[in-house]
């Protein structure tokens, strides 16, 4: 389609390169590593032993993995041109509100749709492995999203631009310079449209990506609800979660 008047083709290519490079440099696992590990699946016995763990132990493990992954998303954000020029308040707001959504997009790289397993702590795990968490609905929602995202078969460029567009959301509450964020998001969005167009993808693909946003938001809300409930039942364990996890998802 037509480019916005303040966005030349050269701009678009520069933005695309920057965002894709930032994404590839800050992925915890490369596509090759994940491919190698794809068939490294937890055995039924191993799955059973996870299921028999305490809720506290399992929540602690997941909080640790999410915290580790968040640091990579922070690094991704820092490398997106323009992000560090935003005021500190807005950088924090965008990361607090968007880092889990970006993680959910990235997670589909670690999802194997042929056996409905997700890479977790060294091997690929089925949803049942997470039974001890006591939030099957959240776990199933995450697997469902990963399944539907993986069906879109996003390439690295599309995933990078989609992640950046989701992160640079101007409608996050308490933003002080939302217009600046909107400008950044618009450019990334145009770059994404351009990338899809150049790859011969039809407009439906972008619509399908955008249609996942409500699902992602509801998973993020469900996660906070489950965490609040867990914190009521196991306050000491919740307090021992990594400080960054508490900072990002604390009320």
């Amino acid at each position: 389609g037509s480019l916005p008047d303040n966005c030349s083709l050269h701009d678009i290519e520069r933005i695309t390169q920057n965002v894709v490079k930032s994404h590839l440099e800050t992925c915890q696992y490369s596509s090759e590593e994940l491919k190698k590990l794809t068939w490294n699946v937890y055995t039924p016995e191993e799955t059973r032993s996870f299921q028999l763990k305490s809720a506290e132990w399992m929540w602690q493990q997941c909080a640790l993995h999410i915290t580790n992954a968040i640091q990579y998303v922070v690094e991704f954000a820092k490398r997106i041109s323009g992000f560090m020029e935003l005021c500190q308040n807005d950088q924090i707001i965008l990361l607090k509100a968007g880092c889990l959504e970006v993680l959910l997009i990235r997670m589909c790289r670690a999802y194997n749709s042929s056996n409905n397993t997700m890479f977790f702590d060294g091997k690929f795990a089925s949803p049942q492995l997470f039974k001890a968490l006591g939030c099957d609905d959240l776990v199933n929602a995450v697997f469902e999203l990963a399944k539907s995202l993986s069906r879109l078969q996003l390439n690295d460029e599309e995933m990078a631009l989609f992640s950046a567009a989701v992160l640079l959301a101007p409608d996050r509450p308490w933003l002080t310079e939302s217009q600046q964020v909107q400008k950044l998001q618009e450019k990334v969005y145009v770059a994404l449209q351009h990338s899809l167009h150049m790859n011969g993808a039809n407009t439906e693909k972008l619509d399908k990506m955008v249609s996942k946003l409500p699902q992602m938001k509801s998973i993020c809300n469900l996660h906070v609800d489950k965490l609040e409930f867990f914190r009521l039942v196991h306050p000491e364990t919740a307090y021992s979660f990594p400080p960054l996890y508490r900072e990002v998802f604390g009320s």
């Binding site: 640091q71 922070v74 924090i92 607090k96 990002v248």
Partner: peptide, 20 residues
């Protein structure tokens, strides 16, 4: 700032899990 001191620190420091 106090409430988000770790995020602030991550945003400020140049070393990152990726470099480590």
């Amino acid at each position: 700032k106090e409430k988000h001191k770790i995020l602030h620190r991550l945003l400020q420091n140049s070393s990152s899990p990726v470099d480590l």
